[in-house]
Design a protein around this nucleic acid. Structure first.
Length: 573
RNA sequence: GCGCCUAUAGCUCAAUGGAUAGAGUAUCAGUCUUCGGAACUGGUGAUGGAGGUUCGAUUCCUCCUAGGCGCACCA
């Protein structure tokens, strides 16, 4: 509310004025604590000694009186109140709330208004990044879901977005894999599945514990690979091909599309140049035969191992250099697990030392690790959760519920299958996206499979419910509302207020790098709508026009929000 | 040993330094003469501990406890 802020500045003479939404509906649409701030300042002797004994409520009353004189009350503001502790609460006119909410129903205009936030700016988002020759686990699912959602959010705000899938397709692990394939592989590489490759990799680690010489062999093979040894390159290429095919199936199923998939190997040829750059700027130094970068407050990072091979730190530096040159980004977001926090702190610092980019323009969205409800998440014991299993179980659950509903009986087999798929994937994605990315996530089958309460399907259900209502009304023009009903009930006011927060929630999600902001918001909207729906009839009521308008705006809000989260809507479920 | 992160209801999560700490789930009790019950209404139930800063602290600072992650030839 620019108008209120502007007038508050005039009255108080202060620049730093922020309006917030009160925690409780009864306190209006906006509130400010400015009177408390002013009172504190007065008490401390700022700005005029004669007022030193003012308490916040008196100050608030003074401000309110002055505001009443200069604020135009014909249009937006209904009333201003002074509340308990000295809060100033602003109540907006219902007509104004409705007018705001109408914006949502003009999708083209609404989107173009959203698109002004990031106009002219570019962001590179690094996400998903599964490892070649390893199955797609739920850890990478988290990076994929959150990364894609951030991509969608920045995009709708007008940023030019570049998504890059930094595939783990290079490194000593391939030395290990080659050794394992040559020693224990029981069929040609091209006939192997990703599961076979994983087993060989696991076997390598088991054997290497008994015979440490295997590690040396693996390092040698990686050195060969880096030098372009034909046999090593061939095996490597086949492993990459097998994996990519499988990953693409996963992305198809998830409805994810990533602009580029420059893996680590892509940067291989640029590495000598990067090392030369570092040397030239004297950013790195030699230590025990290796090249390292040293920091004041962090352990050193390794650029080149003593046997001449590179590390992924070097490749990440090359990646930054490439991205800067190619896309000139204003912001770079890395959606990678928190276990790599130190690596990225070192990387960002080094990039700044090189003068390539400021540290603050690089963000590591460090998502928490996934743990079992009971305790640790042990990958060593082979207890990784494969994505396939999760989706299969979600599908079963969705099918079970669908079979008990009336609507699904009216569906064709194809429609039903599609719906079940959307619900299952929606449930899984929402589970990831509805929590603060930074926190560890407790993997709980019951919660992931929950299709009720705070869940993806709850949103899909509410959307479908809106569509059903809209299909039954005879009101044709649902976008705007001519005359308001005489009275707007509390449920309707609450819903209107909620709907009007869509834009600021999208902005907040981008600022906090947290799709969870949107997920939480959508649940709130769905709840407000369902509460309204439970208490008031829509069709064949005097207020039908207005209530259809609310229904339309709710459907549009949920539809747009779910789209940002990468969750499909369904017309019926 | 050093560094980073986390701790909110039985469980899983919310709360830009603000008003009576919100949801879901579980549990107990209700709503089907209904535009979709994958829904709605009500009850029970919480800020790890000790200090500090502030008009005001779940939020900021210090210490303690518990857990997680990381600390050069893995990524």
């Amino acid at each position: 509310m620019d108008e209120i802020v502007k007038k508050l500045k005039v009255v108080t003479g202060l620049e730093n004025i922020r309006l917030e939404h009160p925690t409780d509906e009864r306190f209006g649409d906006y509130s400010t604590n400015i009177a408390m701030v002013v009172a504190t300042h007065l008490r401390q002797g700022f700005g005029g000694q004669e007022n030193q004994k003012k308490n916040p409520i008196e100050v608030a009353k003074e401000i309110k009186n002055k505001l009443d004189e200069i604020i135009d009350k014909t249009d937006t503001v209904e009333k201003i109140e002074v509340a308990g502790g000295g809060f100033l609460n602003f109540y907006l006119k219902k007509e104004y709330l409705v007018k705001q909410a109408e914006n949502i129903n003009y999708e083209t205009e609404f989107r173009s208004s959203l698109g002004k936030h990031g106009l002219g700016k570019t962001v590179v988002i690094d996400y998903s990044a599964p490892n070649i020759a390893k199955p797609f686990g739920i850890g990478h699912l988290r990076s994929t879901d959150i990364g894609q959602a951030l991509y969608n959010i920045y995009k709708i705000l007008g940023w030019k977005c570049i998504g890059d899938n930094h595939l783990g397709d290079w490194g000593t692990q391939f030395g290990k894999l080659i050794v394992a394939i040559k020693k224990w592989g029981d069929k040609p590489v091209e006939k192997m599945t990703i599961g076979d490759l994983e087993k060989l990799y696991v076997k390598f680690h088991e054997e290497a514990e008994k015979d440490p010489k295997l590690d040396d062999e693996a390092r040698e093979w990686f050195a060969k690979l880096e030098k372009g040894d034909p046999e090593a390159r061939e095996i490597w290429q086949k492993c990459v091909d097998i994996s990519i095919i499988e990953f693409n199936q996963v992305y198809d199923m998830l409805g994810v599309k990533i602009d580029f998939a420059h893996g680590e190997a892509f940067y291989e040829k640029m590495l000598p140049r990067v090392i030369a750059d570092l040397n030239k700027k004297k950013v790195c130094s030699e230590s025990q035969g290796a090249l390292i970068v040293e920091f004041d407050d962090m352990p050193p990072a390794m650029i080149q191992k003593s046997n001449g091979t590179t590390t992924y730190f070097t490749r990440d530096l090359a990646t930054v250099k490439y991205r800067l040159k190619e896309w000139l980004p204003d912001l770079m977001i890395y959606e990678v697990g928190v276990d790599q926090a130190l690596h990225f702190r070192q990387l960002f610092k080094t990039v700044e030392m090189m003068g390539w980019m400021e540290q603050k323009a690089m963000v590591h969205v460090a998502h928490g690790l996934i743990r079992w409800k009971g305790g640790k998440f042990s990958t060593r014991e082979g207890k990784t959760i494969h994505l396939d299993e999760v989706i299969d179980r979600a599908r079963e659950k969705a099918k079970e519920i669908a079979n008990s509903t009336q609507v699904s009986k009216e569906m064709t087999a194809a429609e039903k299958k599609k719906m079940i798929e959307a619900v299952a994937i929606g449930a899984i994605k929402f589970n990831d996206l509805s929590q603060d990315p930074r926190k560890d996530i407790i993997f709980d089958w019951e919660r992931v499979m929950s299709l009720q309460g705070d869940s993806g399907p709850y949103l899909q259900y509410t959307y479908a419910r809106c569509q059903s209502v809209l299909s039954k009304t005879k009101i044709l023009e649902q976008k705007n509302i001519g005359d308001l009903p005489k009275e707007i009930n509390p449920e309707e006011v609450a819903l209107l207020r909620g709907l009007n927060k869509l834009e600021e929630k999208i902005v907040e999600a981008a600022e906090r790098y947290s799709p969870a902001v949107i997920a939480e918001y959508l649940v709130k909207i769905a709840r407000l709508y369902n509460e309204f729906y439970g208490k008031h009839r829509i069709i064949d009521q005097p207020e039908e026009t207005f209530r259809i308008f609310l229904t339309k705006a709710t459907a549009n809000t949920i539809g747009l929000g779910l789209g940002l989260l990468g969750i499909k809507t369904v017309e019926r479920m």
